[in-house]
Design a protein around this nucleic acid. Structure first.
Lengths: 237, 237
DNA sequence: GTCTATAAGATGATAGAC
DNA sequence: GTCTATCATCTTATAGAC
């Protein structure tokens, strides 16, 4: 599994050795630290924090372990850096998407509309963001299921957006009790988490009838399902 | 390599160190291998397969690491044994619960009824099964989110019950397309997974308004939410 | 920034005594 | 069944050369 690859050793670092100054801000890993983050993101998303050693990351990235410590201090520092990197992008876009929808809908907010706006950036990054974003989503999925640090981590990075989501859903469902709104969100959150994982379980269960990789359909169905769920939970006395 | 069959029940009367006969209370582990399974279940559910060492389990159980190898062969063998132990109990009860409901309801199956019957054993074990069952549920929750072995593991242990669930939902929702039934189940499965985890995230997010530990309410809300979702997804042309 | 070398300890697993 | 002793390997992390 982690055999020393004689090709990646010399070849990998060599290609970026003579670089000077800031790397160009374009696609692909824009520097060694970004490359390390990409590799770590991939491996962490598959095997978890404890299932990946810094040697695994270093070997796969074609650098030495000492370099990871130079950039990120400890293994946990590397993990946190991976988690943080895309969270900021994602949160900004989801807030913007929700705000844009609220502005457009005016007084005619619907649960479907709010939820779709919330999910929209996930669809787009999942479809066009390349493998890095898919790995990141799988990582979030596992974080949300983790009983030790999951709750705290998810809260730290994503609560702002969630609170805005619930705020808009409250407007879309006049008279709803807060308690029901939260319980309904809990169900939506679970569905979202499972979708982000793309574990292929649905494909197998349905004998190929459904493909978890069909993100556009997955999110459209989720919005429809969850909107009905919110209405059912929130429309009672 | 003479490995005892873990299924064969308590091997003999003298199970613990200086002890003779059965442990006084029928509550606790009924033998050393069961004790090891309980400890492993607890630790694996919190830190994952790679986050727990054989030594961690041995120390916590008060036995030597060699004994774990004697009973379970490898670390992975121990993990599998943990996973399998309660799966069989759970599956039998969920199938029985679904069958009982189908018999009682006759031609008047409803999505709420089917889903509630499916969830019922989870409520009961979660409330009355002690910490072991809670740990087990947390373990399932993480398995379902795992992109590497999660899909395969969940399918191996739980597909029979899921297929029966979908079969009954198909009867409760005449005219539904299979594809929509599977997508709807996907959303229910996600909500269930998050609930099983009991990560405390909802408690924090709602400022204590909702308690994830209130299983009866959690599952009642889930059944209502999901039933509406199934109707919304399956009631289209 | 990147590597070499290495410390200091943890890990999964086995052989064999009792 | 249970423990003692041990091994070969892998782990995170640091110091220092270039």
């Amino acid at each position: 599994m982690t055999k020393p690859d004689p090709e990646a050793g010399p070849a990998g670092p060599e290609t970026r050795k003579g670089r000077r100054g800031r790397p160009p801000k374009s696609e692909g890993p824009s520097g060694t630290s970004e490359l390390i983050l990409d590799v770590a993101e991939d491996l962490f998303s598959k095997h978890g924090l404890h299932g990946v050693s810094i040697r695994d990351v270093a070997n796969e990235a074609g650098v030495d372990t000492a370099l990871l410590h130079y950039y990120f201090g400890t293994k946990l520092g590397l993990f946190d850096a991976v988690f943080k990197r895309r969270a900021e992008i994602l949160n900004a876009e989801r807030l913007a998407s929700l705000d844009a929808y609220a502005l457009k809908a005016g007084d005619a907010l619907t649960p479907e509309g709010v939820i779709s706006a919330f999910l929209q950036p996930l669809v787009e990054w999942g479809e066009k963001g390349g493998p890095g974003w898919k790995h990141y989503f799988a990582l979030i999925s596992q974080a949300n299921a983790n009983p030790v640090w999951g709750g705290e981590t998810m809260a730290r990075y994503f609560d702002d957006v969630i609170r805005r989501l619930i705020e808009l859903l409250r407007l879309a469902l006049p008279g709803a009790r807060d308690e029901d709104l939260y319980w309904a969100y809990h169900n939506l959150s679970g569905a979202l988490t499972l979708t982000l994982g793309e574990t292929g379980r649905l494909d197998r269960l349905s004998n190929g009838l459904c493909r978890s990789g069909d993100l556009r359909l997955a999110y459209a169905n989720m919005a429809r399902f969850a909107a009905a769920g919110f209405r059912a939970l929130c429309a009672r006395a």
